[in-house]
Amino acid sequence: MATKKTATKKKTAAKKSATKKAPAARKKLATKKTAKKLPVRKKTTKKKALTPGALTAGAPAENPRAHALARKMANLLSDKKGVDILLLDVRGMTSYADYFVVASGESDRQVSAMAEHVLTKLKEDGLRPIGHEGMETGQWVLLDFGEVVAHLFFTEARSHYDLEGLWADAPREKVA
């Protein structure tokens, strides 16, 4: 019987020592797993395809359709006696438009009338704006035609917001 007791004591002692060492062994395994480094991704560089319209590297592509639309809008604004009509070429400077048309009116009614005139004449040509804002007040009217955005200001509002100063680096074309 003494052999049986010693054998059971050995078994229980082995179980106790195994349970005591088990958490430490788990910690070691856990630290080993987290210590593994993940594979590093290679940085891929995209090669830009040269388009026939690109003049030089980094120069924005010419957009004759947008330029023609901007010129047409400027001419429509001059029909309604718009003042200081300016085309700003913002290609490569902004992602949402290629040209800005900036014009002023002598009164808030004139600014609203200029905007209405542009909208109706371009609608006749099948062009509809993405959006327009400020028609009710006539202080600052924005007409968004995608590639061309028109900013029509009441004279005092134009000097206050100074879009020409904000886009001073943009090439400009004075229309009227």
Score class of each variant (00 low, 15 high):
Ile85Gly: 07
Thr155Asn: 11
Thr34Ala: 12
Ala157Asn: 11
Lys36Thr: 03
Ala68Ser: 10
Ala59Met: 09
His151Ala: 03
Phe154Thr: 02
Arg91Glu: 00
Arg158Asn: 04
Thr120Val: 13
Ala49Phe: 08
Lys9Pro: 08
Glu147Arg: 12
Thr45Val: 09
Ala70Leu: 05
Phe145Lys: 07
Asp98Gly: 08
Arg158Ala: 00
Ala57Val: 12
Leu55Asp: 09
Thr8Asp: 14
Ala13Arg: 07
Gly146Ser: 03
Lys32Thr: 05
Asn75Arg: 15
Phe154Asp: 08
Lys174Thr: 12
Thr120His: 15
Pro60His: 08
Pro60Asp: 06
Gly138Tyr: 07
Ala49Leu: 10
Pro39Ala: 04
Trp167Ala: 07
Ala22Gly: 06
Ala14Leu: 02
Ala59Lys: 11
Asn75Phe: 14
Ala115Tyr: 04
Asp162Phe: 08
Leu142Phe: 11
Asp79Trp: 13
Tyr161His: 02
Ala150Glu: 04
Ala7Phe: 11
Lys28Asn: 10
Thr3Gln: 15
Val148Thr: 00
Asp98Lys: 03
Ala74Phe: 08
Ala35Leu: 06
Asp144Gly: 00
Pro23Gly: 04
Lys28Asp: 03
Lys5Asn: 15
Glu106Ala: 14
Leu143Phe: 04
Ala49Tyr: 11
Pro129Ser: 02
Asp144Met: 02
Ile130Lys: 15
Leu69Lys: 09
Ala30Leu: 12
Ser78Trp: 10
Gly146Lys: 09
Leu87Lys: 00
Thr44Pro: 07
Val148Ser: 02
Pro171Cys: 03
Ser104Asn: 03
Met93Leu: 05
